[in-house]
Protein backbone atom coordinates (compact mmCIF):
# COMPACT_ATOMS: atom_id res chain seq x y z
CA UNK A 1 0.00 0.00 0.00
CA UNK A 2 1.13 3.52 -0.76
CA UNK A 3 1.16 5.92 2.17
CA UNK A 4 2.20 9.51 2.69
CA UNK A 5 3.52 10.65 6.06
CA UNK A 6 5.18 13.83 7.17
CA UNK A 7 7.94 13.10 9.66
CA UNK A 8 9.78 15.89 11.45
CA UNK A 9 8.70 18.31 8.72
CA UNK A 10 9.61 16.24 5.65
CA UNK A 11 6.99 14.45 3.56
CA UNK A 12 7.65 10.85 2.52
CA UNK A 13 5.66 8.72 0.11
CA UNK A 14 6.36 4.98 0.33
CA UNK A 15 5.02 1.59 -0.54
CA UNK A 16 4.55 -0.37 2.70
CA UNK A 17 3.45 -3.90 3.52
CA UNK A 18 0.08 -4.00 5.27
CA UNK A 19 1.68 -5.60 8.33
CA UNK A 20 4.50 -3.08 8.61
CA UNK A 21 4.54 -1.35 12.00
CA UNK A 22 4.96 2.39 12.08
CA UNK A 23 8.11 2.10 14.18
CA UNK A 24 9.76 -0.16 11.61
CA UNK A 25 8.72 2.17 8.81
CA UNK A 26 10.25 5.10 10.69
CA UNK A 27 13.49 3.26 11.42
CA UNK A 28 14.04 1.26 8.26
CA UNK A 29 12.44 3.26 5.43
CA UNK A 30 12.73 6.81 6.73
CA UNK A 31 15.94 6.40 8.72
CA UNK A 32 14.62 7.80 11.99
CA UNK A 33 16.72 5.48 14.14
CA UNK A 34 16.43 7.83 17.10
CA UNK A 35 13.15 6.06 17.77
CA UNK A 36 13.83 2.59 19.11
CA UNK A 37 12.12 -0.70 19.84
CA UNK A 38 12.39 -1.99 23.42
CA UNK A 39 9.72 -4.68 23.63
CA UNK A 40 7.08 -6.53 21.64
CA UNK A 41 4.07 -6.12 23.90
CA UNK A 42 3.60 -2.31 24.01
CA UNK A 43 4.79 -2.18 27.61
CA UNK A 44 8.03 -0.24 27.46
CA UNK A 45 7.19 2.91 25.50
CA UNK A 46 10.68 3.29 24.01
CA UNK A 47 9.11 3.78 20.56
CA UNK A 48 6.83 6.68 21.58
CA UNK A 49 6.36 9.38 18.92
CA UNK A 50 3.73 12.03 18.30
CA UNK A 51 1.06 11.27 15.70
CA UNK A 52 -0.90 14.37 14.82
CA UNK A 53 0.13 15.89 18.13
CA UNK A 54 -0.72 12.92 20.35
CA UNK A 55 1.85 10.54 21.81
CA UNK A 56 1.55 6.99 20.51
CA UNK A 57 3.59 3.86 20.90
CA UNK A 58 4.69 3.46 17.32
CA UNK A 59 5.00 -0.30 17.75
CA UNK A 60 1.24 -0.39 18.22
CA UNK A 61 0.36 1.54 15.07
CA UNK A 62 0.47 0.09 11.58
CA UNK A 63 2.29 2.23 9.07
CA UNK A 64 -0.87 2.29 6.94
CA UNK A 65 -2.80 3.77 9.86
CA UNK A 66 -0.43 6.72 9.78
CA UNK A 67 -1.28 7.55 6.16
CA UNK A 68 -1.71 11.30 5.88
CA UNK A 69 -0.48 11.92 9.41
CA UNK A 70 2.05 14.32 10.75
CA UNK A 71 4.62 12.60 12.93
CA UNK A 72 7.19 14.08 15.26
CA UNK A 73 10.07 12.00 16.59
CA UNK A 74 12.78 12.89 19.07
CA UNK A 75 14.92 13.90 16.08
CA UNK A 76 12.46 16.66 15.17
CA UNK A 77 12.37 18.44 18.52
CA UNK A 78 15.43 20.66 18.48
CA UNK A 79 15.06 23.93 16.56
CA UNK A 80 18.11 25.47 14.88
CA UNK A 81 20.42 23.53 17.13
CA UNK A 82 18.59 24.59 20.28
CA UNK A 83 17.30 21.71 22.36
CA UNK A 84 13.59 21.45 23.18
CA UNK A 85 13.05 22.46 26.83
CA UNK A 86 12.40 18.81 27.73
CA UNK A 87 15.60 17.63 26.06
CA UNK A 88 17.45 20.36 27.94
CA UNK A 89 15.75 19.43 31.21
CA UNK A 90 16.64 15.75 30.78
CA UNK A 91 20.28 16.76 30.27
CA UNK A 92 20.36 19.27 33.13
CA UNK A 93 18.74 16.87 35.62
CA UNK A 94 20.74 13.76 34.67
CA UNK A 95 17.48 12.07 33.69
CA UNK A 96 19.16 9.49 31.49
CA UNK A 97 21.95 6.97 31.78
CA UNK A 98 22.09 4.49 28.92
CA UNK A 99 19.64 6.69 27.03
CA UNK A 100 17.70 3.91 25.31
CA UNK A 101 14.34 4.80 26.86
CA UNK A 102 15.06 8.53 26.57
CA UNK A 103 13.47 9.31 23.18
CA UNK A 104 10.21 7.70 24.24
CA UNK A 105 10.38 9.26 27.71
CA UNK A 106 10.89 12.72 26.24
CA UNK A 107 8.07 12.35 23.71
CA UNK A 108 5.70 11.08 26.42
CA UNK A 109 6.75 13.87 28.78
CA UNK A 110 5.93 16.50 26.18
CA UNK A 111 2.50 14.98 25.77
CA UNK A 112 2.05 14.81 29.53
CA UNK A 113 2.82 18.50 29.93
CA UNK A 114 0.55 19.40 27.03
CA UNK A 115 -2.31 17.71 28.89
CA UNK A 116 -1.32 19.02 32.28
CA UNK A 117 1.10 21.95 32.24
CA UNK A 118 1.38 22.07 36.02
CA UNK A 119 1.63 18.49 37.28
CA UNK A 120 2.74 17.43 40.74
CA UNK A 121 5.16 14.55 41.29
CA UNK A 122 2.44 11.89 41.39
CA UNK A 123 0.85 13.20 38.21
CA UNK A 124 4.19 12.96 36.44
CA UNK A 125 4.73 9.42 37.70
CA UNK A 126 1.28 8.39 36.51
CA UNK A 127 1.75 10.11 33.17
CA UNK A 128 4.99 8.17 32.56
CA UNK A 129 3.87 4.76 33.78
CA UNK A 130 3.69 3.40 30.24
CA UNK A 131 7.37 4.10 29.71
CA UNK A 132 9.93 1.84 31.35
CA UNK A 133 13.45 2.83 32.35
CA UNK A 134 15.93 0.35 33.83
CA UNK A 135 18.72 2.81 34.71
CA UNK A 136 17.44 5.82 36.61
CA UNK A 137 14.81 4.63 39.06
CA UNK A 138 12.75 7.45 37.48
CA UNK A 139 13.62 10.02 40.15
CA UNK A 140 15.60 12.31 37.89
CA UNK A 141 13.15 11.81 35.03
CA UNK A 142 10.35 13.04 37.27
CA UNK A 143 12.55 15.93 38.36
CA UNK A 144 13.32 16.81 34.75
CA UNK A 145 9.65 16.89 33.79
CA UNK A 146 8.79 19.09 36.76
CA UNK A 147 11.72 21.33 35.85
CA UNK A 148 10.58 21.53 32.23
CA UNK A 149 7.06 22.39 33.38
CA UNK A 150 8.54 25.40 35.16
CA UNK A 151 10.52 26.43 32.08
CA UNK A 152 7.55 26.07 29.78
CA UNK A 153 5.23 28.07 31.99
CA UNK A 154 4.39 31.29 30.10
CA UNK A 155 4.00 33.34 33.25
CA UNK A 156 6.19 31.81 35.92
CA UNK A 157 4.80 31.82 39.41
CA UNK A 158 6.71 33.91 41.91
CA UNK A 159 9.53 31.97 43.50
CA UNK A 160 8.54 30.23 46.66
CA UNK A 161 5.11 29.29 45.35
CA UNK A 162 5.06 25.56 45.76
CA UNK A 163 1.34 24.95 45.72
CA UNK A 164 0.71 21.69 43.94
CA UNK A 165 -2.30 21.30 41.74
CA UNK A 166 -4.77 18.54 42.32
CA UNK A 167 -4.87 17.72 38.65
CA UNK A 168 -3.96 14.18 37.70
CA UNK A 169 -2.88 13.28 34.22
CA UNK A 170 -5.48 11.11 32.56
CA UNK A 171 -3.77 9.33 29.72
CA UNK A 172 -5.99 9.03 26.68
CA UNK A 173 -6.53 5.88 24.68
CA UNK A 174 -3.38 6.23 22.67
CA UNK A 175 -1.35 8.13 25.21
CA UNK A 176 0.82 6.32 27.68
CA UNK A 177 -1.23 3.18 27.77
CA UNK A 178 -1.90 0.97 30.73
CA UNK A 179 0.62 -1.60 31.74
Amino acid sequence: MRITVTVDGTTYRDEVAPRQLLVHHLREAIGKTGTVVGCDTSNCGACTVHLDGQSVKSCSVLAVQADGAEITTVEGLARDGVLHPLQQAFHDNHALQCGFCTPGMIMQSIDLLADNPDPDEQAVRHGLKGNLCRCTGYQNIVRAVLDAAQRLRPDPAPTGATEATEATATPGELVGGER
Binding site: R27, K32, T33, G34, T35, V36, V37, T73, V74, E75, L77, A78, L83, Q87, F90, H91, D92, H94, L96, G99, F100, T102, P103, I106
Partner: peptide
Protein backbone atom coordinates in the same frame (compact mmCIF):
# COMPACT_ATOMS: atom_id res chain seq x y z
CA UNK B 1 28.91 18.19 35.53
CA UNK B 2 25.98 17.38 33.25
CA UNK B 3 27.11 14.57 30.98
CA UNK B 4 28.79 14.89 27.60
CA UNK B 5 27.08 11.71 26.46
CA UNK B 6 23.63 13.27 26.68
CA UNK B 7 24.00 15.46 23.59
CA UNK B 8 23.53 12.52 21.25
CA UNK B 9 21.19 10.54 23.46
CA UNK B 10 18.54 13.24 23.97
CA UNK B 11 18.44 14.07 20.26
CA UNK B 12 18.28 10.55 18.87
CA UNK B 13 21.69 10.73 17.19
CA UNK B 14 22.46 7.30 18.55
CA UNK B 15 24.41 4.34 17.26
CA UNK B 16 22.67 1.37 18.79
CA UNK B 17 23.82 -1.80 17.06
CA UNK B 18 20.38 -2.32 15.54
CA UNK B 19 20.61 1.14 13.94
Amino acid sequence: RPRKEDARLVTGRTRWTDN
